[in-house]
Amino acid sequence: MLHQLGWLGHTIRMPEDRLPRRVLYRQLRLGHRSAGGQKKGFKDQLKISLRKCGLDPGSLETMASDRTTWRRSCHEGVQLADKKWAEKYVAKKRRRLVTMAAPDTTRQVFVCTVCGRQCASRIGLYSHQRSHNKQ
């Protein structure tokens, strides 16, 4: 993400006649995007990265015009995004461990009528009862 944002700032500071800048600001003149789930383009991914880092896509050009401010903003934003991701990951892991540790009292138990064995699912009970019919 840091490299993407760094390249974006570099491209914005380029002269307008340079090819990377023209490609970044170009619009689709002919044709259209087909219906259905579209793959994310580079600009779409950049907008997502900017939002994750807490940077405003509307004030992008003014921020990127000053290189030192842009670099500092990118580094702080990426650290913020990493911190948010880590907190989300830890919370998800805690929830998973709590649900694994707590006994599930709502689970239905299926009991074999012949031997009294407890099965976790109906299909498991059916399979187990077939073993009694082989005798």
Results as ranks from 00 to 15, higher is better:
74 C>Y: 02
16 E>K: 06
86 A>L: 11
114 V>R: 10
108 Q>W: 05
33 R>V: 11
2 L>S: 06
123 I>D: 13
18 R>I: 01
24 L>H: 11
104 D>G: 03
47 K>A: 04
76 E>Y: 03
76 E>V: 05
29 R>K: 12
27 Q>W: 11
20 P>S: 03
115 C>L: 05
6 G>A: 06
117 R>L: 10
129 Q>E: 15
13 R>N: 05
33 R>L: 15
9 G>I: 04
65 S>M: 09
40 K>C: 03
102 A>R: 15
111 V>M: 11
133 N>A: 15
8 L>V: 10
130 R>S: 04
30 L>C: 10
120 A>F: 07
90 V>P: 00
83 K>Y: 06
71 R>T: 06
112 C>T: 09
120 A>P: 07
74 C>L: 04
28 L>H: 09
124 G>M: 06
66 D>N: 14
58 G>S: 10
107 R>W: 09
23 V>F: 08
72 R>E: 07
86 A>I: 07
131 S>N: 10
2 L>G: 01
71 R>P: 00
74 C>G: 01
48 I>L: 11
37 G>L: 13
106 T>H: 13
117 R>V: 03
58 G>F: 00
40 K>G: 05
132 H>R: 01
51 R>M: 01
55 L>K: 01
88 K>I: 00
28 L>P: 02
26 R>P: 02
48 I>V: 14
117 R>W: 02
57 P>R: 02
45 Q>D: 06
8 L>M: 08
33 R>M: 12
82 D>T: 01
76 E>R: 08
4 Q>I: 01
106 T>L: 12
90 V>D: 11
6 G>H: 07
6 G>D: 08
113 T>W: 05
107 R>P: 03
107 R>M: 14
39 K>N: 10
77 G>S: 07
121 S>F: 08
108 Q>T: 15
74 C>I: 12
119 C>L: 15
18 R>A: 12
15 P>I: 00
105 T>W: 09
49 S>T: 15
25 Y>R: 13
119 C>E: 15
126 Y>I: 13
30 L>V: 12
50 L>A: 02
94 R>Q: 13
34 S>H: 14
41 G>F: 11
95 R>G: 14
24 L>P: 03
23 V>A: 09
62 T>I: 08
92 K>R: 13
119 C>Q: 14
85 W>Y: 09
35 A>C: 04
9 G>E: 05
80 L>M: 08
37 G>S: 12
10 H>K: 08
126 Y>F: 12
112 C>S: 07
95 R>S: 14
103 P>E: 14
44 D>M: 09
52 K>W: 08
102 A>K: 15
93 K>R: 14
57 P>M: 08
74 C>R: 02
83 K>V: 00
29 R>G: 05
101 A>D: 07
30 L>D: 10
